[in-house]
Amino acid sequence: MNKDTYDVIIIGGGIAGMTAAIYAARANLRTVVLEREICGGLVNSTYMVENFPSYPAIHGMELMGKVSDHMRLLGVTVEEVTDIVEMKLGGEWKTVATDESAYDARAVILATGRKPVPLTVAEECQQVHYCSICDGIGYKDKRILVVGGGNSGFDEALYLRSLGVGHITLIEMADRFFASPLIQRELLACTNVSARTSTRVKAIVSQDRLKAVVLEDVVTGQIQEVSVDGIFVYMGQHPNTEMLRDCIDLDDSGYIVTGSRMETNISGVFAAGDVVQKIYRQITTAMADGTVAALAVERYLREHFGTSCLNHDDN
């Protein structure tokens, strides 16, 4: 197996990891990004980003494409569709092994983000989806259920409507919707949309394909069967920290605990983005974390191991 040595290994190529890579590369650090899928992370699945300073509205994937191009231009090594099989973070040299190679560095930035909370229903069902951009095409003129009354649920329902979906039922388990008033007004004004709070999916009814959902009013216990052809789930996110559970300090919800320089409890290991314990999870806050983590790595390497960790002419 190949073994490559870098100044810093960044795990996760979302906006936090890519921002960290840009700052690390510009600090002349040999940098590798290891990404399980493709760079861009959750933002890739956001149809329209409307709060990124400089673009009033831009497709998430287009925005991430620009960041990825910038990162590659600076000579960052990027390994995509790669599976991490082992990590040793404890000593001075950290090793991360993937299915094909191993990487050594004195610093690691964890930027693994979050993944959607799954809908727990008894049966496996092909018509339960988490990405409307990917899976919306089959639902023109059909009936769908959107689960989740936050900004994501309302945003995605509007996107699905733009694809020509016949009818949307949106449900939220809490007693109110959490999406911004503006977007709530926009969706709820549509004739082919019905929405209800205090409601959860109790079961699904399927024969080969999804036929209906059984909805339960969580206050009254009342049950109703509603026919739908597909379900799109936006019930929030869980941090991607399963593989870190035994070595990194996590909070009760599984988020990485960091200090003001994005440092973790392990010397030389930093973290950035949605995976970190914090209040607001946005593109800009993930970028801020990535920036701080990369600058802190540069400082850590300089203070502990001298100005240049690797002989950059030896590449």
Partner: peptide, 17 residues
């Protein structure tokens, strides 16, 4: 595939690999 679909881009990379 669809052009604005991240999973499609990932699968494309897998096929190339």
């Amino acid at each position: 595939y669809k052009s604005l679909c991240p999973h499609c881009k990932a699968i494309k990379k897998v096929m190339q690999r």
